[in-house]
């Protein structure tokens, strides 16, 4: 059952900010693909809601725009929009890859990028891709506009740094300065509406066989989407070789165990994650080598 609530179709951001400021138990709704089934199954996460503020009619919230040094995606852009956007495809293909595997076509027609991480579910599939692209969120309240990296926004399961009077307005992806190559991997139960069991995103940049930058993030394997920065740092400046990739995969496995404590699913998940990270690194490396050869 959907609980009784007040509902407002907002048509500008100012109204949204004012309403959020005046009502402690207000929640912004866009696609609704998390909140509405949550209501239906009586989820404790949405019990307190008294007012829903619908932002679907506000154009500013769902436009995708090129800026000088970044691509700015409105927080209520839905996944179909993102998949079809030429600039996201051109500059941030792993995000397209990740979101085109979320839910079903019907879900992607409604579910939004902001909604995917705002509830900070461990299985939010856009998160690993956004993390390796160093996504920064623009957040507004009636008092200020601020920016915060997604990695600092996600606190713990179902908890973020968002205050009740704030709304995430945009997701900004800084352009990468050339020669990065990457991959996204998702393992779910079946095609279609699978909630993801493992998702991984890897991005690498090298010059003369040396790793200049590498970014590795996982979703659904840790309590929240996580960048493995310690291991990334360990890899930087070293030769891109199988031994290093094996070592990195091994260490990531250890870190996942630390973060999760042993869970029943680890026994099955861990070797898969390690093997997959190793494979992704190898594949990216090989592809980069062949691209370089073609260019010479």
């Amino acid at each position: 059952m959907i609980p009784e609530h007040k509902f407002i179709n907002a048509d500008n951001i100012e109204d949204v900010l004012r309403l959020l400021n005046e009502n402690d138990n207000a929640k912004v709704i866009a696609g609704g693909t998390d909140i509405i089934p949550g209501f239906h199954i009586d989820s404790a996460r949405f019990k307190e809601i008294e007012l829903l503020i619908d932002i679907n009619k506000i154009k500013d919230f769902n436009s995708i725009e090129l800026a000088d040094n970044h691509l700015s995606i409105g927080a209520s852009s839905n996944f179909t929009q993102i998949i079809n956007d030429p600039n996201v495809n051109k500059y941030f293909p792993l995000l397209v890859n990740a979101v085109s595997q979320i839910g079903s076509h019907q879900i992607r027609n409604r579910a939004t990028i902001g909604g995917n991480f705002i509830n900070n579910a461990p299985c939010a599939d856009s998160v690993p891709a956004l993390l390796i692209y160093n996504a920064v969120l623009e957040i507004k309240s009636i008092i200020e506009t601020k920016e915060i990296p997604l990695s600092e926004f996600l606190l713990k399961q179902y908890q973020t740094a968002l205050n009740t009077n704030e709304v995430v307005t945009r997701v900004k992806l800084p352009f990468l300065n050339e020669n990065y190559s990457g991959k996204f991997y998702k393992l779910g139960r079946r095609r279609g509406v699978a909630i993801s069991r493992i998702s991984l995103a890897v991005l690498m940049k090298k010059s003369n066989g040396i790793i200049e930058d590498v970014r590795i993030a996982g979703g659904a394997v840790t309590p929240i989407g996580t960048r493995f920065t310690k291991i990334e740092d360990m890899m930087k400046g070293k030769a891109a070789k199988s031994d290093l990739f094996k070592e990195a995969a091994q260490k990531i496995g250890e870190q996942i165990l630390e973060l999760t404590g042993l869970r029943w699913s680890s026994i099955y998940k861990l070797p898969v994650v390690q093997q997959k990270i190793y494979q992704l690194l190898e594949e990216i490396n090989l592809e980069m080598n062949s691209v370089n050869k073609n260019e010479n």
């Binding site: 509902f7 693909t33 089934p37 829903l52 839910g103 019907q106 027609n109």
Partner: peptide, 27 residues
Amino acid sequence: CSIGECGACTILMDGKAVNSCLVLAEQ
């Protein structure tokens, strides 16, 4: 299913296939 998993409730909203169990009437 009532929770967006089966698609039996699919309709078109502004030309797009959508699960009608995942949209509030107010929306």
